[in-house]
Nucleic acid binder design. Structure first.
Lengths: 223, 223
DNA sequence: TAGATTGTTAATCGATTAACAATC
DNA sequence: TAGATTGTTAATCGATTAACAATC
């Protein structure tokens, strides 16, 4: 009863890639099976949560023994749609985009950077990892030709919405947005956002709380 | 009754930086007040959630009018601990780390990269944005001297745990981890993880589901 | 069989949301 | 005052967790 159209809780979907990474690591280090406790530790969650998550995929464990690593990798990759290598477009090869274009993790974990775009004509033609940077005006033609459905957006915030609109009308239905702004997109398009400063600000909140604690304050009153 | 030791729901903490970004944008474009509906749109959430979140900070709105942007920015920055510019250490100036070292968003949004480290002696001494790369063996001395409590980890996964241990014993209590691995740290240390391949894999899951839908399948059965 | 471990249940917890009284 | 909008309530929803029966 394992299905692709499977409706999984979003929280589970977000953890499956971490399980997958941990399972690959276990496989690489010579393991064949792993207990929920073992895999949970490797993935940084508790074992009840792990078992609950995996139970949504169907039954890949054996009571008293654990999970068969090989088949479980196959099932998670299948559910995540990683049985094909997905083509990704990257827009914006500035500081961050340039680094993302060279990021080995994309290649090793199911993706292929199929096109690079930038609005700056002086960067067009430049090769990164053997792939030439194209002008953003080529987005419609190239995205269609390469059947690209996923894009990584690494432009300045001021350009992000316009580029997103162009990507979407060319056929992109998933966007990973590194620009610090909110994108407005049709319902059928999925957006995930990574904002590096926001991550640090969340940590800053906890630093602030920790220092209040050290001062023995239960609620350092402002002013 | 605004307090620093304030216990906020984690979900609220994670959204405050987004509100802050939207508020700065509104302030920059000449606005003085904004309604919950207006700010919610700018931040990509619904207005009920926004009002609930802000209610935890105390009362900064006026019924019938909206929120005063200036004071609200001040309050959110205060709660997030951004009234001081926090010193950050960055370890690993490879592909991604080099880009992060030059990321303007860190500087403009409350942080100061105070030290760069790498294990590769051939990179030690190299200057990035005017700051020299130091060897990881300098972590204990420099982290203490500069009172650094936040670190960004952009090393290979194989080195991440060892470097994290060194950072923590030098006094770091918050880590932003870009290495694709789980860190084990004491309870007092906060870790946030950014895994670029995982973000794409989550999008891939939704792509897979969308294509199953197009095929009219309610549950494309496997095999 | 005895020991180990999964898969599932049910209780609990936290987050979201609509609705509206309070109030500017 | 009338209109607008906040702050709060209460219902709902989804996620987490401990515990344990099922079963290898």
């Amino acid at each position: 009863m394992s299905q692709a159209g499977l409706d999984l809780p979003e929280a589970t979907v977000a953890r499956l890639p971490e399980y997958l990474r941990a399972l690959h690591h276990l496989a690489d280090t010579g393991h064949d099976t792993v207990s929920s406790e073992g895999l949970a530790n490797a993935a940084g969650v508790n074992s009840a949560k792990l078992r609950k998550d995996l139970s949504h995929l169907g039954s890949y464990g054996t009571r008293g023994v654990g999970y068969d690593i090989g088949p479980l990798i196959g099932q998670i990759e299948y559910v995540l749609g990683l049985t094909m290598r997905r083509a990704v477009a990257l827009v914006g090869v500035g500081n961050l985009g340039h680094a993302l274009a060279g990021y080995a993790g994309f290649t090793s974990r199911g993706f292929r950077i199929a096109a690079l775009f930038d609005a700056d004509t002086t960067r067009v033609g430049e090769k990164i990892n053997g792939l030439a940077v194209l002008h953003v005006s080529d987005i419609p033609v190239v995205v269609k030709r390469e059947s690209i459905s996923i894009a990584v957006l690494a432009t300045p915030a001021s350009a992000a919405q316009t580029v997103a609109d162009q990507l979407i009308s060319a056929g992109v239905t998933s966007i990973l947005n590194f620009a610090p702004c909110v994108l407005s997109v049709p319902d059928r398009v999925d957006v995930r956002k990574v904002d590096l400063a926001i991550e640090l600000q969340i940590l800053s909140f906890h630093e602030h709380r920790k220092s209040a604690h050290v001062n023995g304050l239960n609620g350092e009153v402002r002013k």
